[in-house]
Amino acid sequence: MNPKNVGVIENPDGYGKVGNPVCGDLMEIYIKVKDDIITDIKFKTFGCGSAIATSSMVTELAKGQHVDDAIKITRNDVADELDGLPPQKMHCSNLAADALHEAIKDYKKKKK
């Protein structure tokens, strides 16, 4: 277990938060964007091993990508990069991708 991109970004260009600690998973993703390219990305996760792994993986996948490409990253992409997840843990990868999508939507809203 050696997650990458842990932390927060002060004054992020986009911020996404999904999940609920009651259900056992809560994720936050912060992005810094320049010319629609994600230049920095950080996360914080309350959750199981899969949740931490998928958060870390989704930040790795999105880093350096154009926001319009990054928003297409799906739960399956995340799980595939991790060489699969047990069926009952698939919702963890869903959450990680959702948090990224929320952060990108937030960025686009702010840009308008």
Partner: peptide, 14 residues
């Protein structure tokens, strides 16, 4: 408080 048990288990296993 603030952390999750399966992560504790996996981290302790290290």
């Amino acid at each position: 408080s603030y952390i999750e048990g399966e992560s504790i288990l996996l981290n302790m296993d290290m």
